[in-house]
């Protein structure tokens, strides 16, 4: 996890990537793909870009990478302003979604060319290509034509091109799309290994996977920011506990809980023969201390505690906000 203080993470002025009021639409009569979007990605984090289909994730990547011009707003990449291939040479890596690879080339040839365009010398490009291929476990396919690679291998090769020579900021658009669980896990490991080397922005529909690897999350819907923050903030790990309990959580026990925890929000959902108790603390309250109180009251009321979980899953948080 990124160990930067929370305030620093929320300070856009030091961010690796910052967009401000960004708007983009495909044609004058179409809906806004990005609608005055303002968000940022702190330096050094692995950021998950989350949103349903059509939320604007790929458009956002494309505008940041200079593939699409925006209608309004600004982009600041690594403090260098908008995308500029020379100022950001070797500092920005991008894995574009659905971009084909030249099937007639070998994996190594492709990466050597990418290295040459990044301004690396022949020797440096060769070295970087070998490292990147090793990183994505494609060393044994280095001299094979891209045409002979599976979909998963191609995604890994694309990821290798984005990670080539360790850029400071890497944008990965749906890197795990279409991969089987084994390949996805393999690529996820690759991304996790990048932690501490730079800033990664990863979009994916697999929120369980994103929750595992990300420190920072940006939730988008219809081109607008729904929420951004640390995973703990977005999932409510600091303010929410879910208690799975057995039978006996009646009105009397609930009244005891409310009396013991003034200002807390308590909500009960029936679940099988028991219930699911949602406990939300007011801002600034000590969640651990209040959790102890809940446990005591439940025990005193003879209610069995079957399990508890701090915060919701990213998927639940995502669905709740849409």
């Amino acid at each position: 996890m990124n160990s930067a203080p929370l305030d620093a993470l929320h300070d856009p002025s030091t961010a690796a990537l910052r967009v401000d009021g960004l708007s983009k639409r495909y044609g004058r009569r179409s809906a806004w793909a990005l609608d005055s979007l303002t968000c940022h990605v702190p330096r050094g984090v692995i950021c998950g870009l989350v949103g349903p289909n059509g939320a604007g994730k790929t458009t956002l990547y494309s505008v940041i990478s200079g593939f699409l011009p925006q209608e309004a707003g600004t982009v600041d990449i690594l403090g260098e302003g908008p995308f500029d291939p020379w100022r950001l040479r070797g500092r920005l890596g991008v894995l574009p979604q659905d971009a084909a690879l030249d099937e007639r080339l070998t994996c190594r040839e492709f990466l050597l060319y990418m290295g040459a365009l990044q301004g690396l010398s022949g020797k440096e490009a060769a070295q970087a290509a070998d490292v990147a291929l090793d990183e994505v476990n494609l060393t044994d396919r280095a001299r094979d034509r891209i045409a002979s690679l599976s979909h998963g291998m191609r995604r890994r090769l694309s990821a290798a091109s984005a990670l080539l020579a360790q850029p400071e900021l890497v944008l990965l658009d749906e890197p795990m799309a279409g991969l089987d669980p084994v390949q996805a896990a393999s690529l996820r490991e690759v991304l996790v290994r990048q932690r501490g080397r730079g800033t990664l922005v990863v979009s994916s529909h697999n929120l369980v996977e994103l929750e595992r690897i990300c420190d920072w999350v940006i939730l988008l819907e219809k081109g607008k920011l729904v929420q951004q923050g640390t995973v703990a903030e977005v999932t409510g790990r600091g303010v929410h506990v879910g208690w799975t309990v057995g039978p006996g959580l009646d009105a009397a026990v609930l009244a005891s809980l409310e009396a013991a925890l003034p200002g807390h929000t308590l909500r009960v959902e029936a679940q099988g023969d028991g219930a699911l108790l949602h406990q939300a603390t007011p801002p600034g309250d000590d969640l651990d201390a209040s959790a102890v109180v809940v446990a005591r009251v439940l025990a005193a009321g003879g209610v069995a505690i079957r399990g508890c979980q701090r915060g919701r899953s990213l998927e639940e948080s995502f669905l709740e906000r849409l």
Partner: peptide, 13 residues
């Protein structure tokens, strides 16, 4: 058409 040009346009003008 196949967007392969994107790999290059990230790196050059």
């Amino acid at each position: 058409r196949d967007r392969s040009i994107r790999y290059e346009l990230v790196r050059t003008g």
